[in-house]
């Protein structure tokens, strides 16, 4: 009886304001998602999008320390392609390009993907606890503050009486003359220093991906007659193609833009531009020119070219790994 009455009342209240109610709820459901997005949008716009546009504009100007406050850099009349011409006609351009390619590809192949994959495969094939402990230890280089970490490597590479490697390994073996190893083999150390940190990222991603593969596939391939190596090649690797693509792309981009380890380790030396990479050049031009002049416009141009290279690389990876094939059609059951 009372239930019926309640229902009746609700019905009448609904029918008396049909439009206002639905309009309000429509408005609410339409705006609500944007309300949630707003904080993120503000942060991304302020700290990423606006600086990006500014860097892009600056790259067409010759803004530097001397004309700061005088040059109206935002006026198209002051925009030219001079900076880009300067980059590509620079005497050291081939060397910097070469350095960058070597730095990125060597670190990527041997450490960030290569060694990461090897460690992941080994630590997931041995006793679980031992594997886990090993990966935890490997993470230490990522957890160490970068300045401390570089100081440590400098101590390792130091000249004869102090340097750990010279004193305890090369000396007793009678190899080398006890020189500062960062001067004799700067590239080796740059790749090692970056690689030891970089490998830990791929190691974590790969080992969790490998552990997520159902055990039945491994057992099936053993029964089918595969050796450990064949199981890795035909089953494990294809099944972690997506994380492989992700790590390769992500690490290429972060290696292209990272320069802090090189800055602290060799600062582009020891020879003229010997270990100067692209992102370090952008930094040097924009913030610490040898002549005390900080060329913000010129540095921005270097950075913009780097961003374009990064985008091109990402597209190439998606093609090479056949990204489309990684996304499977949903299963439709038909008996």
């Amino acid at each position: 009886m009372s239930d019926n009455f309640q229902l009746e009342r609700e019905r009448s209240s609904l029918s008396s304001f049909p439009d206002s109610k639905s309009l309000f709820s429509k408005l609410k459901s339409g705006l609500l998602p944007y309300a949630f997005l707003t904080p993120t949008l503000i942060v991304v716009t302020l700290f990423f999008f606006i600086p990006l546009v500014m860097v892009f504009i600056l790259s067409f100007t010759n803004l530097d320390m001397t004309n700061f406050g005088i040059l109206k850099w935002w006026q198209p009349a002051n925009w030219t392609l001079d900076n880009y011409v300067k980059i590509f006609t620079n005497r050291f351009f081939p060397r910097i390009l070469n350095n960058t390619l070597m730095y990125v590809s060597m670190t990527l192949i041997f450490f960030n993907v290569g060694m990461a994959l090897v460690i992941a495969l080994i630590t997931t094939n041995i006793n679980r606890r031992v594997g886990f402990t090993f990966r935890l230890i490997w993470l230490m280089c990522r957890l160490t503050p970068v300045v401390v970490y570089i100081m440590m490597w400098k101590a390792l590479a130091g000249p004869a009486p102090m340097g750990v490697i010279n004193k305890h390994i090369l000396g007793p073996l009678g190899i080398g003359t006890g020189e500062y190893l960062l001067n004799t083999n700067p590239w080796l150390f740059i790749i090692l220093v970056n690689g030891f940190i970089g490998a830990s990222f791929g190691m974590i991603i790969f080992s969790s991906a490998i552990e997520a593969i159902p055990k039945d596939y491994m057992i099936a391939s053993k029964v089918d007659g595969a050796s450990t190596w064949q199981t890795i090649r035909y089953i494990t690797i294809p099944m972690i193609r997506w994380p492989l693509l992700f790590v390769t792309t992500y690490q290429t981009l972060s290696l292209l833009t990272s320069f802090e380890q090189i800055l602290l380790l060799t600062n582009g030396g020891p020879g003229l531009y010997e270990t100067e990479v692209w992102s370090l050049t952008a930094y040097h031009r924009a913030f610490s020119s040898y002549f005390g002049n900080t060329q913000w416009g010129y540095g921005s141009a270097w950075a913009v070219v780097l961003v374009i290279i990064g985008i091109v690389m990402a597209i190439v990876y998606l093609r090479v790994f056949k990204f489309n094939e990684l996304i499977q059609e949903p299963k439709i059951d038909q008996l």
Binding site: A220, K222, G225, S227, Y234, R241
Partner: peptide, 18 residues
């Protein structure tokens, strides 16, 4: 296993998805 001359079907079938 590879030298035992066995064939096996799993409960999950374990067909390689790729």
């Amino acid at each position: 296993p590879k030298d035992r001359k066995i064939g096996m079907v799993f409960q999950s079938y374990a067909l390689y998805p790729h």
